[in-house]
Every structure is written in C-alpha cells, then in structure tokens.
Simulated scan of single mutants.
Amino acid sequence: MATSEIAVSDTPQPLGPLAKRGWSLHSSKGADADATVSELLKLGDRLGTRVAGRGGSLEEVIQPHGANDAHPRSLSARYGLDALPFHTELSHRTRPCRYLLLGCIDPGSPAAATMLLDWQTLGFSRDDLDLLEGTPVLVRSGRRSFYSTILAPGGAFLRYDPGCLEPVDQRGRMALALVEDRIARASSEAHHWRQGDILIIDNWRVLHGRSPSDRGSGRRLARILIDA
C-alpha cells in the first residue's frame, strides 16, 4: 500500500475541503493544549452535535495502549501498539458518527502517523457495491450486537471495522474479504502530527488507521465525535 503526505489547508472553512476530499487539516492559533482543545471544540460545534465515545465522554484524550491496557472491545486490545487497521469510527453502533475530530496535544516521540483512505477510491464495481449493501454481517457490540450491512442503504457510509464485524455466511466472508483486499492494495495518505494540528475526518467517507507506536511515546490526541 502506497502512502502520501497531507498538506495543511490554508482555508478557515472546514466544510469546503471536507466536501472535496473527505478531510480537512487546520492549525490552532496557539500550540498549547488548551488552545488546541478550544479550537477543536469550536470546529466540532460548527459541524453538528457531539456524541459520546466508547468511554461515554463527549471529549476524550486518546493515546496508544498495549493490548493488555486497552478497552477489551477496542482495536487496541487486538493490535496493541502495532499498526491499527483502517476502520470507520463507531462501527459498533447502528449509526456511526458523521465526523471525527482529532487535535494534537503531543505528537509523541517517535510520532505515529494517522492514516487516511477514502473508500470511494477503492474501485468497487456495481456488483461489488450490491454485495456490500445486500449482505448481512454481525456487528459485535456485547449485549447490543446487531446485524447490518457493510455498505449502508444508498451508499451513505461504509461500515468497516475488523474488530467488530463478523460474517454469518459465505457471502459475508466474500464481502469482508473484498474490502480487506481493496484496502491492502490502495494508496493511502499519512498525516504526521505536529502540536496544535487539528484533523477533521468525514467518518462516512474516509477510513482511518494509525501507524505503529512505541510504548511511552507520549502521543496524545484530543478527540470529539460529531453527529450531523
């Protein structure tokens, strides 16, 4: 899989770049943590309504965890400090959040990149899309597990997370293998964090992941999730 670097947007309007490419990169006016979080919240409130993350909080600070220290149903519990695979945030919920906003409090040393991949560039044929939209899979979410499809009706969003999606039949295995294969062969974009950076991701369009991280690197990102 090839990767390319992301350049900082020079526009103060978050919706223009989001509509064009599915993500937008900004810099807070101050590089300290308070300024970054403040700008992050302002941008998020312009986009929609905050929703709680897995831990139940509307505002979170995330950092790489080893498998033994991570939430038991998170990707980190499976992959630890290795690279986190591309996924849709909140795939384990019936409606994934529309936007994911990340603000860099500390890039860490060595810094781990956030990887971005627009699923609309994966070259799915009409038959592929019919398979993804018409084949049920099991979404594991504890007692709230449910059945869904990888592609939402009408192609509104791609629900993909290897940590919570399971096939229920041969067509389900084909659908998941199709997405996994296209991701493995795709060209992605990498953002290497600097303190004060703010990344807005259209979660319905762009999958994200993380490059490998070191234990104790100090990497900390503020995160909010937005419904719209």
Score class of each variant (00 low, 15 high):
T3K: 07
L102D: 05
G44R: 06
V8Q: 08
A19S: 12
Y147P: 02
P153L: 15
A7C: 06
I200D: 05
W23I: 11
L41V: 12
L101E: 05
R223Y: 02
H65V: 07
R219N: 14
I200F: 06
Q120T: 14
D169N: 14
Y160A: 00
S213N: 08
R219G: 09
N203F: 09
R219I: 01
S27T: 04
Q120P: 02
I198L: 07
L116K: 02
W119N: 02
I62R: 02
G22H: 07
L84Y: 03
S141A: 15
S28F: 09
A19N: 08
G154V: 10
G55N: 11
G80E: 15
R215E: 13
L132Y: 14
S27M: 07
R93C: 12
D69H: 02
R95S: 13
E133S: 12
E89M: 06
Q120W: 10
D10H: 03
L132C: 06
A228D: 03
I183L: 00
D161G: 01
L225R: 14
E59W: 05
P72M: 04
Y147G: 09
E60T: 13
R220T: 01
D128L: 01
S217P: 08
D82M: 02
D32E: 14
M115D: 03
G196N: 04
P12M: 00
L58G: 12
Q195H: 01
I198S: 04
Q120S: 14
M174K: 12
D181C: 10
I226T: 02
W204R: 14
W23Q: 05
L40S: 11
R126K: 11
V179K: 11
D45Y: 13
T3V: 13
P14Q: 11
A19Q: 13
R73K: 03
L176H: 11
L176P: 04
D118N: 15
G209L: 00
L138E: 15
S27L: 06
V206G: 01
G103C: 10
I224L: 08
A184I: 04
D197M: 02
L165K: 09
H191Y: 01
R219C: 13
P153F: 11
A152T: 10
I201V: 07
A112H: 04
E166G: 12
R220G: 01
R46Y: 10
S4F: 14
E39T: 08
R46Q: 15
D128G: 05
V51L: 04
L138I: 11
D227V: 08
L18Y: 03
T135V: 14
Y99F: 15
F124G: 03
S28E: 08
E60L: 13
R126N: 12
S76K: 05
V139E: 01
F86P: 00
A7L: 15
A67P: 09
L131D: 14
D106G: 06
I226P: 00
T88Q: 09
